[in-house]
Each structure stands twice: as C-alpha cells, then as structure tokens.
Design a protein around this nucleic acid. Structure first.
Lengths: 228, 228
DNA sequence: GTCTATATTATGATAGAC
DNA sequence: GTCTATCATAATATAGAC
C-alpha cells in the first residue's frame, strides 16, 4: 500500500505538488468539455449536468472545482481572453512592425475565433444576461487595444498610414471591421472556417480600406502645413 | 344579452369578422410581451411561462395561439424581418436613388435594429440553436439583398460608384460594415441608441470607405479601356 | 378560449456518508 | 474528492372540465 504509488505525503507546503497539478488538469478538462457543450447546445445551453455526464462523473463533484455555473462561464471567459490575446500577440511579434503586423495579428485573431466559435460568442456577443465577467477576466481586452494601437502607431511612424491612424477612433474602426466579418461568418456559415466562407475573403479588402481611411498627407498638404 | 354588445353571430364565413380581429390582436400582444421578455432575460431566456405570467393568463392558454415555443420564435422572426424590411424600404424610397438612398436605408435599418435589439439578435446572431427559421420567415431577407443591390446599381448608373459596385461582393461588403457597427454597439453599449454610442458614429466614415472601395474609373483608365 | 391538474423532464445547489 | 440523496425550482406540453 505504501509501495511506490501515490506517496500521499502531506503537501510539503511551499510549492505546487503533484496533487495541485492533477487538480489543474481536471479543471482544464472540465473547461474543454464545457466548450464542447456550448458548441453543441449554444452558449446559453451550457449546463453542469451535461458537463458531468460527458466527464463521467456526478454533478455535485464539479462543485469541488467551480463554485457555480457562473464560475465556469467566468473561467471560460478568462481562458478565452488569454488565449486569444496570446495568439494575436504572437502573430504580431512574428511580423514586420506596422501594417503587416496589424494585418497578421487580425488574421490570426479571426482564425482563432472562428476555430473557437463558442468562446468567440461568449467574448463578443455576451449572450448570457446573468453572466457579468469579472474585472480580472476583462483585463486582457485592454491589452488587446494597446497592441492594436501600438501597431497603428508603428504604421504611422513608418509612413504606411496618415497621422490620424494613431487614435482611438482608428482602433474602433479596426475592431468594427473585424467584428463585422466575424459576425457574418459565425451567423451565416456556422460550419466553415476562416477563408472558406463568403465573408472572411473580404478581409484583405477591408485592410486596404483602412489604408484609404487614413491616407498619407499629400505633398500639397505637406507644403501647406510647412508654409503656415 | 343580445342587446348591442358581442352579437356573437356565427361567423358569416367569407371575410374576417370581429372574432378573427380580436384573435390577431391577442397574437400581437403575445409577441410584444415575448419581445420584452427577450430584452430582459436574453433571447434564449424566452419562456412561455414568463409570457403567460406577464399577460396574466395560465401557460396552457398560449397554446391556443401558438403550437410551441419555437412557433413563437418563428413568428417573432417573421414579424421582425417584415418590419425591418419595411423600415428600410421606406427610408430608401424617400431618398434620392443611389448612394443617398443606400445610406439612408442603412441608417434607418441601424436605428430600428438598435431600438429592437432582441429582435436584431434573433435575426442576425441566431443564438437559439434549436430554432431554425421557416423558409417563409427567411424570404424578406432575400428582398433586402435585392433592395441593396438595386441601390448599388443606381449609384453606379449615376456615376457615384465604380462599376464593380454592382455585384454580390459589394452587397456582402455593405452588410459586413453594417453588421460590424451593430454588433459592437449591441455588445458593448447595450443601453445606448443609434448615435449615442462609440460605434455608430463611425457609420458615415464607413460609407465614405465604400466609395473608396469602388472608385470611379480614372480618365487614364477610361482611355486605356477605350483604346484596346 | 380559459382554466386546473398533471406528466415529464430538467436544472443548480447543498448535506452528508465514505 | 467522489458518491447518493435530496431540496427547490422551473420548464414544455397535454388532457379534460367548464
């Protein structure tokens, strides 16, 4: 009994032990299943009973890992925000700063969101009225805006966009464009991924529109501003 | 008893009598209340029990008017599509054909949708997985596309947009832009109406972008195409 | 066309044994 | 950390009296 399995040593408190790691794995598994349930039954169709069924456990057991159904929603929201941010940040970091980074970042974001539709809906459509994300869960979206704003500033600095592109307005415009593409794709072609539907192919065109929205100062305008 | 109230004549079958009109009024009232419920509890939070409670009747009574909860969803969907189409059509008819009509139509559409958010979500987000609109309920959206397409064709005809604007692609682009604005407004500023939020003010800018997306042929390009 | 009564099913959550 | 048992609640829908 005390041979080589499950040492069951009282946690030598100080740093995460095996037990804590195992627990974290279970939590992630619950969240994965919850995501599947939302994909099948809709975001609002998530229920602890169904998660328990798929996990092969009785519903009360889940309360050892989450305090309530809303707790699960919040963990899903937080995990989704973090993954989404990480994907976008990585794509931007790998690309040339400025417009290219912005484009690659948004495309990576779109791909990830379409591949994780249930989470995308939870993050952007807020279809569960009784669920309000915690401040902690909302934090990554602030950083998202910062990332996009920085890319726009880079694009202005290297002469790809006019100076007004370094603004909150431009960030809103960017998110409006991407949100339009994704909403159409998610609602109208629920089973297709990025590039296979009727709407995401418009993405490059939208990026060109962004350039048109913030044109570089013409030489005439430059002259005028210099001569004043 | 037979005085002047409720003649209760057996329906002289042939055309709608008082009874039928009264019935239709009740149906509309049920749909109005259902809309309120969706506004309060979310689109997926609609329940016949809650509608009955607010109407002041017992739930089984509602089954005299609708065959099921999904029947109510479908009636809401159909009524929403028709009203939305009517609003847009009227706004376009009142305006100068071409870009002005398109802009006025889209703006009227946006106003109506933000003033009827629950219906807008039902129509465009499809958040109720077990609900599939009937073909009849989907018909008005086909006409919607026709309307927009006609306005784009007018705009090309009067020289406001380049020839490529008379295309399905352009219709998709228009609906992507408007859907982006509305999604952002609905999800992020749930209580503000058109023009008071952070996103709908971008609408005029988006219409200018549409013009930029379909430029008129330059005189140089014209010359080239004539000389081939 | 309204009601009462009921069948059926489902949910979130807690208490307490092991 | 798992289970059984249970509470409290709510839903859609139907049968049948009036």
């Amino acid at each position: 009994m005390k041979s080589d399995r499950t040492p069951a040593a009282p946690p030598a408190s100080g740093r995460p032990d095996r037990r804590a790691r195992r627990r974290q794995e279970t939590i992630e598994e619950i969240l994965d299943i919850a995501e599947d349930v939302m994909t099948d039954e809709g975001v609002t169709g998530l229920s602890l009973a169904e998660v328990a069924r798929r996990l092969g456990v009785q519903p009360p057991s889940l309360y050892k890992y989450f305090p309530s159904l809303m707790g699960v929603y919040n963990a899903l929201f937080l995990r989704g925000q973090r993954e989404h941010l990480a994907v976008m940040r990585q794509a931007m970091a790998d690309a040339e700063p400025g417009l290219v980074a912005l484009t690659k970042g948004l495309e990576a974001s779109g791909r990830w969101l379409l591949a994780n539709r249930a989470i995308a809906q939870l993050l952007f459509w807020r279809p569960v009225p009784s669920f309000e994300p915690s401040p902690e869960a909302l934090a990554p979206s602030v950083e998202m805006v910062t990332l996009q704003r920085a890319a726009l500033a880079d694009a202005v600095a290297v002469g790809q966009l006019g100076p007004e592109a370094d603004s909150d307005e431009a960030v809103y415009l960017v998110s409006t464009l991407i949100s339009g593409v994704l909403t159409q794709a998610m609602a109208n072609e629920p089973h297709l991924e990025w590039g296979q539907d009727r709407f995401t192919p418009a993405f490059p065109k939208l990026m060109r529109l962004l350039v048109a929205a913030y044109p570089l100062p013409t030489s005439k305008a430059k002259r005028r501003s210099h001569s004043r």
